[in-house]
C-alpha cells in the first residue's frame, strides 16, 4: 500500500502563502482528512498531490518516490473534484471506463470492471445514462467510481460532498468510507465540515493558514485538541473560568445538578439561574446565567431531565472534564 508524504511543502501565490512548511504523512491504506476553514490551503495541498500544482519548496513522496515534478497522468492518483466533473458527452459507463481505456485495458475486461465498480457505488442501473440525467449524489458516485476503477495508488477527494444536501451527503459519505475500507486505498479527503471529518477518518489533519495544527485520531482531535484553534474549530466550546485560569469545555461535558450539590462539590462548578429551556430533538439546551462569574452556559441535557428544570430556577452546573486550558 502506498504512503503519501508531504515534506515541508511550501506554495505561494503572489504574496498569499497557501501552504507554509506543510508536512503530513498519509499512511498506506488509511483515510486522512484535511480539515480547516475556507482558504486555509486544503485544495492547494490536494492539487499538489494530484500533480496539478508544483510546490515552490519541499517535496512530495508517493510510495517511496519523490514525485513533486511528475505530471498528473503518471501519478496514478484518482481524484474526485469539488465541482461536478463528469464528461458531459459520455454515458456513465463511458465516464467510468475512461481511465481504463487510456490504460489500454481490453473492452471485455473494461466493461466487467466498470460494471463491478458501478455495483460497488450502488448505481449499476444507471450505466447508460448521461451525466445531465443524474442527481448530484449520483454524479458524485459516478465520479468516485471513475476515480477508483483503475486501482489508483492514492485517492484524492476535494470536498466531494459539499454540493449535496444533508441526507444524500451522509449516504455518499458512507459509500466512500465503505469503499475505502474495502479496497484499502490510501485516501486524502478534504472537507471543511468537522462532523464529516470526525466520522469518516482514521486520522484528521486540522489546518489553518497553510499549516497543520494537529494530526491525530478523530477522538484525540475532539477530546484532546493540541491548540486553541483546533479546540474551537472542531466542535462547540464554551469558555469558562476555573481556579487554574480560563478553560474551554464542550457543552456535553457540563452537567446540570442541584445548586447545593454544586456548592458542595470540588472542581469546576457554577451556580446560576436557568434563563431558557430549548428542545432540539434528541437533546435539550438549558441556558444558565451565572451572575458571579458573569458568564452564560449552554448545558445539553436529555429531554426528561429538562422537564425538571423551569426558567428562573436556581441550578448548579458541574464541568466533568476540561477540553483545553487557555
Amino acid at each position: 500500500m502506498t504512503t503519501l508524504e508531504y515534506g515541508h511543502v511550501t506554495r505561494r501565490f503572489g504574496n498569499v502563502v497557501a501552504l507554509d512548511d506543510f508536512s503530513l504523512t498519509v499512511p498506506g491504506g488509511k483515510l486522512v482528512t484535511l480539515l480547516g476553514p475556507s482558504g486555509c490551503g486544503k485544495t492547494t495541498a490536494l492539487r499538489i498531490a494530484a500533480g496539478f500544482d508544483i510546490p515552490d519548496g519541499g517535496r512530495l513522496v508517493m510510495g517511496g518516490h519523490v514525485v513533486s515534478h511528475v505530471p498528473p497522468r503518471r501519478r496514478n492518483a484518482g481524484m474526485v473534484f469539488q465541482e461536478y466533473s463528469l464528461f458531459p458527452h459520455m454515458t456513465v459507463a463511458e465516464n467510468v471506463g475512461f481511465g481504463l481505456r487510456i490504460r489500454k485495458v481490453s473492452p471485455a475486461t473494461r466493461s466487467r470492471q466498470v460494471s463491478e465498480m458501478l455495483e460497488l457505488v450502488q448505481i449499476g442501473h444507471l450505466a447508460g445514462r448521461y451525466p445531465h440525467q443524474l442527481s448530484g449524489g449520483q454524479q458524485q458516485r459516478v465520479a468516485l467510481a471513475r476515480a477508483l476503477v483503475f486501482e489508483p495508488s492514492v485517492l484524492l477527494l476535494d470536498e466531494p460532498l459539499s454540493a449535496l444536501d444533508a441526507q444524500v451527503r451522509t449516504e455518499v459519505r458512507d459509500v466512500i468510507r465503505g469503499l475505502q475500507f474495502r479496497l484499502g486505498t490510501t485516501t486524502l479527503f478534504v472537507t471543511h465540515d468537522q462532523e464529516e471529518a470526525i466520522s469518516v477518518s482514521d486520522l484528521v489533519c486540522v489546518m489553518k493558514d497553510g499549516r497543520p495544527h494537529q494530526v491525530d485520531t478523530p477522538e484525540n482531535v475532539y477530546m484532546r485538541p493540541a491548540t486553541e484553534f483546533v479546540a474551537r474549530f472542531v466542535g462547540e466550546t464554551i469558555e469558562v473560568p476555573t481556579p487554574r485560569g480560563r478553560c474551554l469545555v464542550r457543552p456535553e461535558n457540563l452537567v446540570l445538578v442541584a445548586p447545593e450539590e454544586a456548592r458542595a462539590m470540588p472542581g469546576v462548578t457554577f451556580v446560576g439561574h436557568a434563563t431558557s429551556v430549548r428542545f432540539n430533538g434528541s437533546t435539550c439546551t438549558v441556558t444558565v446565567a451565572v451572575p458571579v462569574e458573569d458568564i452564560v452556559l449552554n448545558v445539553k441535557v436529555l429531554p426528561h431531565q429538562a422537564t425538571l428544570t423551569r426558567v428562573h430556577d436556581e441550578v448548579g452546573v458541574v464541568a466533568t472534564s476540561l477540553t483545553y486550558a487557555l
Binding site: 492518483a77 473534484f81 461536478y84 464528461f87 475512461f98 471513475r146
Partner: peptide, 30 residues
C-alpha cells in the same frame, strides 16, 4: 463547459494533451 475541471479530470485519469483535446474538449464543444 467547465473546461478547467474537465481537463484536470482527464489529466488525472491518465490522458495526455492530445487525447484530452480530441476526446474530452472537442466533443464537449461539438
Amino acid at each position: 463547459t467547465d473546461m478547467r475541471t474537465l481537463t484536470d479530470a482527464g489529466r488525472n485519469l491518465g490522458a495526455g494533451p492530445v487525447v484530452i483535446l480530441m476526446k474530452v474538449i472537442i466533443p464537449g464543444m461539438r
